[in-house]
């Protein structure tokens, strides 16, 4: 049984993630107002009437934050999907085949891993255009290498185990070995990575939105809203920026906690972190 601290982080992380998923599917349940309509004059401070205040056009900040979960999470999911589609097979291939292919792929993956995600993301967004899918692509480029690495190292370690060599000498096909022996490990090890990747993806999407090259307005996205609200900060209008930022923080910490707990559960050696 996992130690107490792990159980706590798992519970809190899962709780936050579930809340976010709920917001994703049923934002109407949490916010009666919609994020596009104008409900009051611009820049009204938070009050009982406007829970988290109004933004530059008079829209409800609270509503925009709640509905904003859809866009951030969708982009993050796209990023996840692309990262695993690209990273997992390549990792398997690299680990299994080895040799020059492995060396070549590793170098490429390392480059993308190291290259600052934000700079790369900005480039991709500009070149491909600011749509949800493209933002997902931008995030995926930076996240895929992590999937690649994990899968590759699992493949390597399973491949060299004696029973696999025994099976190979008995004529087992490669795909049999891959599916029967390697895949089970892959799914358990990548669960943590999946959660942590969502955190990264949400962060990247929000950052690009903040810089103004994310999903174009009037779509409610946390980063974009925060960026737009920035103008008011100097004059003390803090709410259009602070609350979206809190949402990003909330999402990131939730997925981080869940990911940490999963990592600790599936790989006890990491428990000390």
């Amino acid at each position: 049984m996992a130690p107490k601290s792990t159980r706590i982080t798992f519970t809190i992380g899962l709780a936050i993630v579930l809340v976010l998923i709920f917001l994703f599917f049923f934002p109407q349940a949490v916010s009666p107002r919609n994020p596009y309509d104008i409900y009051d004059s611009p820049f009204c401070p938070p009050s009982w009437k406007n829970l988290w205040g109004t933004d530059t056009l008079g829209r409800d900040v609270y509503a925009r934050c709640v509905y904003g979960s859809r866009y951030s999470l969708t982009a993050a999911l796209v990023a996840l999907a692309l990262s695993s589609i690209a990273g997992v097979p390549l990792g398997l291939l690299s680990g299994y085949v080895g040799g020059k292919l492995d060396g070549f792929l590793s170098v490429i993956m390392d480059t993308f891993y190291l290259f600052p995600l934000i700079i790369l993301g900005m480039l991709v967004s500009v070149v491909l255009g600011p749509t949800l899918v493209n933002l997902g692509i931008a995030a995926a480029i930076g996240i895929a290498p992590s999937f690649y690495r994990v899968v590759r190292s699992i493949t390597l370690s399973v491949k060299t185990r004696t029973f696999v060599e025994a099976e190979k000498s008995m004529g087992a096909s490669s795909s049999y070995i891959v599916f029967r022996h390697i895949m089970p490990y892959v799914s358990s090890s990548t669960s943590a990575l999946l959660s942590l990747s969502v955190a990264s993806a949400v962060f990247v999407v929000a950052t690009l939105g903040f810089l103004g090259i994310g999903i174009p307005p009037p779509t409610p996205e946390w980063g974009t809203d925060l960026g737009e609200g920035r103008a008011g900060v100097a004059t003390g209008i803090w709410w259009p920026s602070t609350f979206p930022g809190l949402m990003v923080f909330f999402a990131v910490i939730g997925f981080n906690l869940l990911g940490d707990a999963l990592a600790s559960i599936f790989n006890p050696r990491l428990r000390r972190l």
Partner: peptide, 29 residues
């Protein structure tokens, strides 16, 4: 430290700006 790795950089920068420079005036904006 958990907070530290989860806080988005643009948010913390903005909050610092807001609280320390704008509200308190201790440091330049």
């Amino acid at each position: 430290t958990l907070f530290g790795i989860s806080l988005p950089i643009f948010w913390i920068a903005l909050m610092l700006q807001l609280i320390i420079a704008v509200e308190l005036g201790w440091l330049p904006v």
